[in-house]
Design a protein around this nucleic acid. Sequence first.
DNA 1: ATATATTTTTAGGTTTGCCTAAATATATTT
DNA 2: AAATATATTTAGGCAAACCTAAAAATATAT
Lengths: 218, 218
Amino acid sequence: MQHTTSEENHLKAIFHLAGINEEAVFTNDIAASMGTKAASVTEMLKKLADRKLIRYKKYNGVSLTETGKEQALNIIRKHRLWEYFLVEKLKFKWDEIHEVAEQLEHIQSASLIEKLDSFLDHPRFDPHGDPIPDSKGRIKKTETQKLIDLNEKKEATVNLVSDQPELLRYLSKIGIALGSKLKVLEKISFDNSMLLQIDGKNKVQISADIAKNISVQL
Amino acid sequence: MQHTTSEENHLKAIFHLAGINEEAVFTNDIAASMGTKAASVTEMLKKLADRKLIRYKKYNGVSLTETGKEQALNIIRKHRLWEYFLVEKLKFKWDEIHEVAEQLEHIQSASLIEKLDSFLDHPRFDPHGDPIPDSKGRIKKTETQKLIDLNEKKEATVNLVSDQPELLRYLSKIGIALGSKLKVLEKISFDNSMLLQIDGKNKVQISADIAKNISVQL
DNA sequence: ATATATTTTTAGGTTTGCCTAAATATATTT
DNA sequence: AAATATATTTAGGCAAACCTAAAAATATAT
């Protein structure tokens, strides 16, 4: 009933790569996202399939079973609750928490996480705006749109940012945070970069790569 | 510069077994305290000696070097800070925290532990009364006496209890906690058991084994 | 449709941390 | 001081989780 850290990390990677449409996930992509090699992933896939946590047919990609998805969501719940704790209680910056949360998410104790949840007053979103699954793995869905898809002249509020330290540091530097109001002044079709105005004040130019990693609410 | 969980656990075990007089520690005792076999310990001792964390001469017992002691104290600091957090913030009972703290103590992040320490307002003692080393590994010493050595008619206050879940559960059951005032009504020389009065109220009989694991302040 | 390229799997190897059993060193008893 | 008992180390194995290199399957391009 207990899983190793490596098993948990593989489940989490598969969950994230599958996306909301729960598409099949491929060996190489898992390896790339975990910084390991395909051969190591194949080995783990066999193990996870034996435990009925994924559906796996050789050369055919994998998908999570119901049980596997539950477990993945539980790990994500732990990760996001710890991130919330680190920022709200310990006063970490939002770009400093990822590594530590990656360790904390593997602590094994059901009562710990429920007590932490109570202590934090059942937060619904982590510091990057990602929803925190409840103890049954249910996630609140919000209608959200990628910044990259926002048209010129439109305004919207940042509600979600990919949890990548480098990105987060960059956004902090240019003044974009959760809750910032962004107005699209210009979209450059040549490279899909965007000229934005932040909270009616500063203007910044951001690349398409950045804009793809920011979600907004109208 | 980073150590594995197993290395850290061995350092901690050696530190605890050495006691305040820092006596030499033996392979079998380490194995017993960790629930492993002597052969595994020998292997680890070689590794720790290579890294200059212990002094090791075959068949001769081991002792921590200055560096080794620092590392051990750092792990103990983390363990005790987390225990304090679990009890004071998350409202765990004092007998429920040991296992979880054993996991949390291995989280690697210097800033995490300093921020946790600030958040908790720099506690000096953990929930069992054990002193929490400061960030330089310094420990406050208190004049303390073992309950077993207390004479008849004497009264004293519990200030330290060994961190063993079974013991803690038992003490909770009979009504002994940190801060309880104990009066020695009778010492039975036959088996060294003691008849105590707790906070001027209930009377209980405790065995020598229990009394050895409780410290008191006059 | 065949050739080429890419992806995935298999085969075999490494390290860490554990094990058992046998060998060796030390301690205790007679 | 031998003999016996106890403690420790050595030798050889195992499982987990990684690796590289080669083989096999699938996808893409000519």
